[in-house]
Write a protein that binds this DNA or RNA. Structure first.
Lengths: 151, 151
DNA sequence: GCTAATTACTTGATATTTGAAGCAATTGGC
DNA sequence: GCCAATTGCTTCAAATATCAAGTAATTAGC
């Protein structure tokens, strides 16, 4: 293993650890203050950005999870009256999920707290550092997103 | 929400997405080529670095999971003869987990492939970029690790 | 040395996630 | 229009994760 490989490994380890720690912190704060969870929050956040609703498949792509999991999550959120599910008028296979009025209010209050938590965490970096981080993560993301080739 | 907050949010989203995508790719490659998984690999990797073995509690801290989960994982790996579990001679409450010879060989072959995958993914960044990323993630990690205060 | 508090781990119930299989609706090629 | 392939979703079982409670061993305070 070359020195470069070792450094990449350490980088990946740190990336993983950092993300997991932030995730945990957000998840436990959501639990503590709103009796919710990060996956639920993420799903609601996607719906918030889509006033016309989203199909199940779109949801699963956006929150990076499987279709089965979205079915499960939406069922739970539906039971809590935070979202509704309707058959699409143009494609009867598809289900369209939307935030309810209650869901919107609920999400808004969570989102506000969530933003503060995030801002607090990343406030340790200067704006320039944040931009640099964002940019470089973008490079890695694009790399992983597209089928890899040996360049 | 200020512009800064919005940027932090986007940064977090990208951090999360990137990590998840890399994780998925590694996990599916481990499945495909070694019929293993990332959590198993991570556990074995910790043991590889500790020739004298690790206690269950140390393992759960290092791989950022709960004690119950480590019990579960170790039981599975033990059944596959990749690790052994012995009562600590100095503290009979504690269990010490070690790689077996088979486990070492198995891990070594996985680790080699794993390193290539990682190196390949991060090769899109220059060495300087990698260092910069590593350093800034460290700042965030330290922030989340320690109890937060406002600034 | 005894007792209470602490620590290390396991257990069992439950929650979440995945993956494969299945079903119904839609689409494309004829 | 008709059939095969595809698509969108659900279901089910299995893998994985959490949490709270329980058990056993250790430590601390006296």
């Amino acid at each position: 293993m070359s020195q470069t490989d070792r450094e990449s490994l350490r980088l990946w380890l740190r990336l993983f650890t950092t993300t997991t720690l932030v995730e945990r912190q957000l998840d436990s704060a959501l639990k503590r203050e709103f009796s919710s969870t990060l996956p639920r929050f993420d799903l609601l956040a996607q719906l918030e950005c889509a006033p016309d609703g989203l199909r199940m498949g779109e949801l699963s792509e956006r929150i990076l999870t499987t279709g089965g999991n979205v079915t499960w999550l939406v069922r739970a959120l539906e039971a809590e009256k935070l979202v509704t599910r309707r058959v699409s008028p143009t494609d009867r296979r598809a289900a369209i999920v939307r935030l309810t009025a209650v869901g919107k209010r609920h999400f808004a209050s969570m989102a506000q707290a969530h933003e503060h938590w995030i801002a607090d965490i990343f406030a340790t970096l200067s704006p320039d550092d944040r931009r640099a981080l964002h940019q470089r993560l973008g490079v890695v993301k694009d790399r992983v997103r597209s089928p890899r080739s040996t360049t």
